[in-house]
C-alpha cells in the first residue's frame, strides 16, 4: 500500500497508470456534468458506450489476454439481452438483481457449452478455427432470432420497462448511468485483478505459446473454457443492461456486425490493456457519434481507415502510445541453434 503513495508508482509504465485512472475518473464525473448541463442526449450516449465498454473489456480478456480469437462475442451480449427482455416482458421480473443474475448465468452457460465444443477433444485449437466457429454462430443466431416468432422475430422485443434496484424503481435519466458506471467499475476491477494475478500469467502463456504451456503441464482446454465462460457471462450481463437501457432487444444484438465492432474497440484501444478497450468504445461511440449521424454511409469506411492506420502504425493500439518500449527485438534462437546443431561432427 505504501508504494502507492510514491510518485514512482504513479509514473511507472510511462504514465499509463495515471492515464487510466484519469480516464475512469473523467467518465464518472462526466455523467452528472452532462446531466446538470441538460445534455441528456450525450449522457445517454455515454451510458450506452459504458455498457458496450463492459462487453469490450470482457472480450479483451478472452482475446487480448488469453488469445481466444472470438469473432462472436455478440452471441453472449444478445443472449443476455433476450433473456432479460423475455423475463421483463413475459414473466414480469422487474428486479435488476434478478435480471442481471439471469443474464450472467445464461452467458456462463452458453460459454460453457460453446467452449466445451471449441476447446475439448482437439489436440490443437487454431485461431482460425475458433474465429470461424464463433463467427458462424453469431451469424446463425442472428438469422434464427429474426425469423423466430416466439421471440418477436425481426421486431425483437419491445417495451421493456426500467427495472427496480433493491425494491426502488430506477428513474429514467442519470440513474441508469450510475448502474452502468458501477457495473463497469466492478468489471474493470475484476479484470485488473485477474490480469495481474498468477492466473493472468497462465492466460498470457497460453496466448503466446499454448503448446509450451501444455508441456509445462497446464491443461489448456480447462483454462480456455474458464476464461471463455466467465467473459461470456460478463458479455451477457452487458447485453442485459443494454436491453434495459434501450427498452428493446433486436436480433442485431446477436449479430456479426456487433461482434466485429467489439473487436475494433479492442484493437483500437489496445489488446491486453485494461482500459484500452474502453478508449476504443468512447472514441467510436461518443467521439464519433456526430460523424456517425452526419455521414452514416461513410462511417464504416472512416472506422476501417482509422483501424487500418492503427494496425499498421500502432499494432498494440492507441494505449501503446504511453507504453515504454521495453520489448527489445530479441534475436530469435532458431538461427543460432540450427547453425550450431547443423553439423553432426561437432567441433
Amino acid at each position: 500500500m505504501q508504494r502507492v503513495l510514491t510518485p514512482a508508482w504513479w509514473l511507472a509504465d510511462g504514465g499509463r497508470r495515471v492515464g487510466a485512472i484519469a480516464l475512469v475518473a473523467g467518465i464518472v464525473i462526466a455523467g452528472p456534468l452532462l446531466d446538470g448541463a441538460g445534455e441528456s442526449f450525450w449522457m445517454m450516449a455515454l451510458t450506452r458506450a459504458l455498457i458496450l465498454g463492459v462487453l469490450a473489456v470482457a472480450t479483451n480478456v478472452a482475446w487480448g489476454v488469453t488469445g481466444i480469437f472470438t469473432l462472436g462475442q455478440a452471441v453472449f451480449f444478445g443472449v443476455g439481452a433476450y433473456v432479460v427482455g423475455l423475463l421483463a416482458t413475459r414473466e414480469d421480473v422487474v428486479a435488476l438483481e434478478s435480471l442481471a443474475g439471469a443474464a450472467l448465468g445464461a452467458g456462463l452457460l452458453c460459454g460453457l457449452v460453446v467452449g466445451a465444443f471449441l476447446f475439448f477433444g482437439r489436440r490443437r485449437v487454431g485461431m482460425l478455427y475458433v474465429g470461424l466457429v464463433t463467427l458462424a454462430l453469431s451469424y446463425a443466431l442472428e438469422r434464427l432470432a429474426s425469423v423466430w416468432g416466439e421471440i418477436g422475430a425481426g421486431n425483437g422485443i419491445t417495451g421493456i420497462p426500467l427495472p427496480t434496484l433493491l425494491g426502488t424503481e430506477i428513474e429514467p435519466g442519470i440513474s441508469f448511468f450510475w448502474v452502468a458506471v458501477v457495473t463497469l467499475l466492478v468489471v474493470l476491477g475484476l479484470a485488473w485483478a485477474v490480469m495481474r494475478s498468477q492466473f493472468g500469467m497462465v492466460m498470457r502463456a497460453i496466448r503466446d505459446d499454448d503448446e509450451r504451456a501444455e508441456f509445462l503441464g497446464y491443461r489448456r482446454p480447462i483454462v480456455q473454457l474458464v476464461v471463455f465462460a466467465a467473459t461470456g457471462g460478463v458479455g451477457a450481463l452487458a447485453g442485459g443492461l443494454y436491453a434495459l437501457e434501450e427498452g428493446f432487444v433486436s436480433p442485431t444484438f446477436l449479430g456479426v456486425s456487433l461482434s466485429t465492432q467489439v473487436l475494433i474497440y479492442v484493437l483500437l484501444g489496445g489488446r491486453d490493456s485494461l482500459v484500452g478497450p474502453l478508449v476504443g468504445v468512447l472514441l467510436l461511440e461518443v467521439g464519433g457519434q456526430r460523424v456517425q449521424e452526419e455521414l452514416p454511409t461513410e462511417w464504416p469506411i472512416i472506422v476501417g481507415a482509422v483501424l487500418l492506420l492503427v494496425i499498421l502504425f500502432l499494432p498494440n493500439g492507441l494505449t501503446q502510445l504511453g507504453r515504454r518500449r521495453r520489448r527489445a527485438a530479441a534475436p530469435r534462437p532458431e538461427t543460432a541453434a540450427e547453425v550450431s546443431g547443423g553439423d553432426p561432427r561437432g567441433e
Binding site: 503466446d208 509450451r212 534462437p333
Partner: peptide, 22 residues
C-alpha cells in the same frame, strides 16, 4: 502432453521456447 508433464516428464525443446514478454 499435460498429462505426461503432470506424471513427471519435462522437456526442453531444440529451439528454446520461453515466454519472451514475461
Amino acid at each position: 502432453p499435460a498429462q505426461r508433464a503432470r506424471a513427471g516428464m519435462s522437456i526442453k525443446f531444440q529451439l528454446a521456447r520461453v515466454y519472451h514478454e514475461q
